[in-house]
């Protein structure tokens, strides 16, 4: 009997310990979610589903993968919180498009600043892990450096074989570096923000004969990075 009580007691202790281990720690700070949505004139882009260009020409995406990172929360231009991590967003893996941040309690901010692409240090630091792991298909093999954005698909106006287009935008060395900083308005409430990335104007301005395939660092990639960085917008400012 004595033995049984002891066993039972130790089991109860184990249960309590387990509960303590499993329960989330007491809340300190607030969650903030950024839902990044690639859109075409405000409409969500779905892979392999055609969208319409200005002249009624059709275009569809097979791959849409890109890096965002170094998120800074700003108040009157001053950084009040930052998260230096990188995120690989992939339209094929929908939950990769929702970014979660844990902010200090009662943080006031009026805008967000983040990187579109990877910084030069990440490009010269050898093998990195997590979102930057070279096995994620975003690292060039024939030459060092990350592909900051991979945008592939087919467009009626592309003169390439099968009307394909293939944009692998990267490059970390000046003058063809492709890292861009983006600033959008934001507020602590509601506790999420929908960040639209509207690709319509980029593709409406693309020079199809010369820009359907960009696969190495250079002026074309740098110019595309600039225009794509301008396409981010707070959905409800």
């Amino acid at each position: 009997m004595q033995y049984r009580v002891t066993t039972w007691l130790s089991r109860q202790t184990a249960l309590v310990l387990l509960a303590l281990w499993l329960l989330p720690p007491p809340a300190s700070g607030q969650a903030f979610r950024i839902e990044v949505r690639p859109v075409w004139r405000g409409q969500a882009i779905a892979l392999d589903k055609a969208v319409q260009g200005p002249a009624g020409d059709s275009l569809l995406f097979h791959t849409l993968k890109f890096y965002l990172g170094h998120f800074e929360f700003l108040n009157h231009g001053a950084t009040v919180f930052q998260d230096p991590g990188y995120h690989l967003l992939d339209l094929e893996a929908e939950n990769s498009l929702d970014l979660l941040f844990k902010l200090p309690e009662n943080l006031h901010f009026d805008s967000l600043r983040f990187a579109f692409g990877t910084d030069s240090l990440s490009n010269v630091s050898g093998a990195l892990g997590g979102a930057l792991d070279p096995s994620r298909g975003m690292y060039w093999s024939w030459q060092s450096g990350y592909i900051n954005a991979k945008i592939e698909g087919q467009a009626e106006r592309s003169p390439a074989r099968g009307h394909h287009f293939q944009l692998h935008l990267g490059g970390y060395l000046p003058p063809a570096e492709t890292l861009r900083k983006v600033v959008v308005s934001a507020a602590p409430k509601p506790r999420h923000l929908r960040l639209d990335w509207d690709l319509a104007s980029f593709f409406e301005q693309i020079d199809w004969p010369t820009q359907h395939s960009i696969m190495s660092p250079g002026p074309a990639a740098a110019q595309a990075a600039t225009r794509l960085a301008q396409a981010f917008r707070n959905h409800a400012p």
Binding site: P134, W142, S144
Partner: peptide
């Protein structure tokens, strides 16, 4: 072309005339 020893192996692994593989599949 390669700026760091760690990422050198990616070149022969993925080159179609060398190992013709992807790192993800090797893993």
């Amino acid at each position: 072309a390669i700026n760091h020893l760690d990422v050198q192996a990616l070149a022969p692994i993925s080159h179609p005339d060398e190992m013709d593989e992807t790192l993800a599949h090797v893993l």
